[in-house]
């Protein structure tokens, strides 16, 4: 149990998707104009990550990994399908995103229309595929750990986007040099936030 909490906290703060790996930057920069829409997108990302990482974990360990097909027949012990992982992971993600889209459209049409194009774009949000690929690379021991990692990464992404949206709402009233307005200053703020987040790096969990 302690282990799970560790993975969860670690993936929120130390291995934060945005500040440590720059994953999911595109939607992060484009949707973070107001706190309200970014909260919605953040929750959608937590949801999608929380489901796709464990599903991809199962697929990875029971279908793709070398020797993963042994449960079918011992003959498959040296079959290695991991080169297919990109395509399979992306297919899982695309179908999960479709599901989330339908749920949001049903329960919150306002959120649906304000997210606009960025909802289907979660499918190509690198944070999601990145989550699955990191899961594959780090070899978690069981599905609970993979779920903790997925949820933690989602929460980390959520915190980051809500944080930057709040700052951007305030900075609109400040006197930023013209060429830096909008995108430029957002990049620099993100960089500074990233440096702040690096303070967590020394923590051993």
């Amino acid at each position: 149990m302690e282990n799970l909490v560790n993975i969860f906290v670690k993936s929120i703060f130390i291995d934060n998707m945005i500040f440590a790996y720059f994953l999911g930057m595109c939607s992060y920069l484009a949707v973070s104009k107001t706190v309200k829409t970014s909260t919605g997108l953040g929750i959608a990302v937590i949801f999608v990550l929380g489901f796709t990482v464990p599903i991809d974990y199962l697929i990875q360990n029971y279908l793709l990994k070398e020797g993963a097909l042994v449960w079918l027949s011992p003959k498959f012990a040296d079959v290695d399908l991991s080169f297919l992982s990109f395509i399979i992971f992306i297919a899982v993600i695309a179908s999960m995103v479709q599901l989330v889209e339908m749920i949001i459209e049903k329960f919150s049409p306002t959120l649906y229309s304000s997210l606009g194009i960025f909802l289907p774009l979660i499918a190509v949000n690198c944070a999601i595929l990145g989550g699955s690929l990191f899961m594959q690379e780090r070899d978690y021991n069981n599905i609970a750990e993979a779920t903790a990692f997925g949820l933690g990464s989602g929460v980390g992404w959520f915190l980051a986007i809500v944080g930057i949206a709040a700052i951007r709402e305030k900075i609109r009233y400040s006197n930023v040099p013209d060429p830096l307005k909008g995108l430029g200053i957002t990049f620099i703020i993100t960089g500074l936030m990233g440096i702040a987040f690096m303070g967590f790096m020394g923590i051993k969990l």
Binding site: F22, L180, F187
Partner: peptide
């Protein structure tokens, strides 16, 4: 050493944007 750390990439891009837009 700061330049090797990830956040500096963002700040460098921010600076590029600044120069380009100026």
């Amino acid at each position: 050493g700061l330049m090797i750390l990830p956040p500096m990439a963002l700040i460098v891009v921010g600076a590029i944007i600044w120069v380009q837009r100026a």
